[in-house]
Design a protein around this nucleic acid. Structure first.
Lengths: 232, 232
DNA sequence: CAGTAAACGTGATTCACATCACAATAAGGA
DNA sequence: TCCTTATTGTGATGTGAATCACGTTTACTG
């Protein structure tokens, strides 16, 4: 990682999240003065589970995964993916001062690290900002509940199908998208072995429900995909 | 359920949650005037997944479970348990206007249903209140992440052990407690079959890690229990 | 651009857990 | 109080998915 030599002023940032749009000009200036903007290569760790959380991570550009590592480190569970405009690390902020998860880039990314104390001040000053943080937080909670259900109550094909629907609708926002994730990462997101992920994907390909051209996934038969994702 | 004939004034409520302690007297009076206090028997549904969420649920007394129902209704996943002082339904409030989960009593309970609009007003007016809601929300998120990890990465005994530790430390707050939950509910909380839950519990009993006297659970060997919960 | 590591893939085997079948006990309702 | 239903329990069987073993292809990296 390297500190960017062209730090953008927050009020000029075209990736600005909905939260920050609630802020007044001078409040945004405060953020601007209490952040660092950093460039990361792909596959770099941005936040490490267990370490002190002194900053909130804002994604200006790129793509990251948020995941939980096991003690033995061999089993990772990917909780979610985030791209431009996302804000990460809020839960560590109010609940505990250490990260409860790790965050790593999956593409070259530009991130802004904003001081926790600055965010806290703004929550007190600006109730619109507080509400938009509340919305984000509840979105995370609902996503986690859904995933808990998906991962524990559905089997292989249902989990993979749910994952493709989620990626298509909520992450890449298109029926055709570059997957970016490896089979191993998809396995870690769906709580199965890499081998099972490979088999499940090829199964969907053979049934012509999805296609995969060098990493470009296209959902060919959404109706059936949804049916599989619901049945289990 | 039946509307309580002795509605407590919020400012006199001895179950008052930390959130409400942030409120000024007249704000608490507003809550008081915009709530209904209702008595529920055990095993009654308080909130039904999919229905409109017009109220926030405050637990004045009793014990409830929050769970997600499957389409076929035969598979339930219990997300969490709540007792006196808890506030439920906030995520439905900001993210969607329908409940993403169901809530049911497990003991006779007294609940206060507070109008969503009233809570929203207070979040805007009182930033301390907003922050305490943020804290609660993040606590839910972190719990969900932990559970996701537990349920997907650990096996039977690890999951049951984690569950007993959670119940002991975070729900009943004692090494000795009345279980309240049936084997089936414990299975739904640990994402396994009822039969497996029965076997796993009896396994822990045989190893003298826990004891069960007519539903009174005692953790006899916490050290080993923690070890099992970590290994998986 | 060769060498090595990471990612992708297929078939055979193993194992954890669900399911089935059935019994005993406890709880709640007419 | 009896009758029904929920809850707890044990052993045998079946199966979904992990693991193992191995080969192929694609991407880094000096």
């Amino acid at each position: 990682m390297s500190k960017s030599n062209t730090t953008t002023i927050c009020s000029m940032c075209e990736s600005m999240s909905s939260c920050f749009q609630q802020l007044k000009f001078e409040q945004l200036e405060n953020i601007s003065q209490n952040k660092v903007q950093i460039k990361f290569n792909k596959k770099e760790i941005v936040a490490k589970q267990g370490s002190f959380a002194t900053h909130i991570i804002f994604i200006k550009k790129g793509f990251v995964k948020l995941y939980i590592e096991s003690a033995s480190q061999d089993k990772n569970l990917i909780i979610n993916f985030f791209s431009k405009g996302s804000l990460i690390g809020l839960s560590s902020l109010f609940e505990s001062n250490t990260y409860q998860y790790s965050v790593a880039t999956m593409l070259p990314s530009e991130l802004c690290l904003i001081e926790v104390s600055e965010i806290k001040k703004l929550v007190v000053k600006n109730s619109e900002f507080a509400i938009s943080l509340l919305k984000r937080s509840h979105k995370s909670t609902i996503h986690a509940y859904n995933q808990m259900f998906n991962l524990t109550q559905k089997q292989l094909l249902g989990r993979i199908s749910s994952a493709f629907i989620y990626l298509s609708e909520s992450v890449f926002e298109s029926d055709k998208f570059e997957l970016i994730l490896t089979r191993n990462e998809l396995a870690n997101f769906t709580a199965m072995s890499t081998m099972s992920a490979v088999r499940a994907i090829n199964d969907l390909k053979k049934q012509e429900i999805i296609s995969d051209n060098n990493g470009i996934i296209e959902i060919l038969n959404k109706e059936v995909l949804v049916k599989i994702s619901k049945f289990g």
